[in-house]
Amino acid sequence: MNRSWYAPRRLLSYLLVVGIAVTALFPLAWMAISGFKSQTEVLRTPFQFFPDVWQLDNYRLILADPAFVRAMVITFAGAVIFTVASLVVNSMAAYAFARLEFAGKRLWWLVCITPMFVPAMAILLTSFVVVSKLGMLDTLAVLIIPGVAASAQMFFLRQFYLNMPAAVEEAALIDGATRWQIFLQIFVPQSLGPFVVVGIASFLGYWNSYVWPVLVVSNPDLTQIMQYLATFRSARGNEWGMLMAGSTLAALPTILLVLIFQRYIVNGVRLAGLK
């Protein structure tokens, strides 16, 4: 009796799944497809979804542009360094705030958590002044270092560490382990899930950033990928095929990251304690 309505319902479900997936991913698919269209086809009347001729020229041309490849490589390298540095700095502080008692803890906690409520725009200009006073303009360091300490990530990791059972730590302390050993050998290995979540957030934050690089970097050797794309759009805005090919390649690493770590990201919502 159940089966009679169950089958069409399931079909409807499948149709909805396909419909939602197609709609959600359409802009990305459209970008990638347009990358395969020649200049005459990319914006044509009458409108056509797929090109008459699939051609690789746009992807080939953009990859032949040394500035594009350099931007991809330097941004990727920066993003990896940034992610690792963020994990080190934020997880250490998170552990201390979650598990250790020390003088002035409340005050330091306030110092470390308040920046979460400071919007980037409020300090954008003076951050620029500060990094130029420090002589950091036009270096890789100015792209990486100012964002490494992230209150929200530290908060997230601290929540996770607060929830870890105290028993193992106690046992290790009695065995004479130092806090550093406990942190590195017990807490860090168990942090893979939250590390992936905040690590991906760091990577995305760096890879996708645009305004900060525009302000602090003018050396073409340090041009970041989003900077490259925005410049390409204002300089060669009519070459849509190539722009779409470049955007596709620039979006690819972030999308791959999601696909590789999808399991962790979905759990991350739960881990955030936000649910």
Binding site: A24, L25, P27, L28, Y210, L229, A250, T254, V258
Partner: peptide, 12 residues
């Protein structure tokens, strides 16, 4: 699937 658009940069 629904998460993928969230990682695309605003510039792209």
């Amino acid at each position: 699937t629904v998460y993928v658009p969230a990682v695309v940069s605003s510039v792209v």
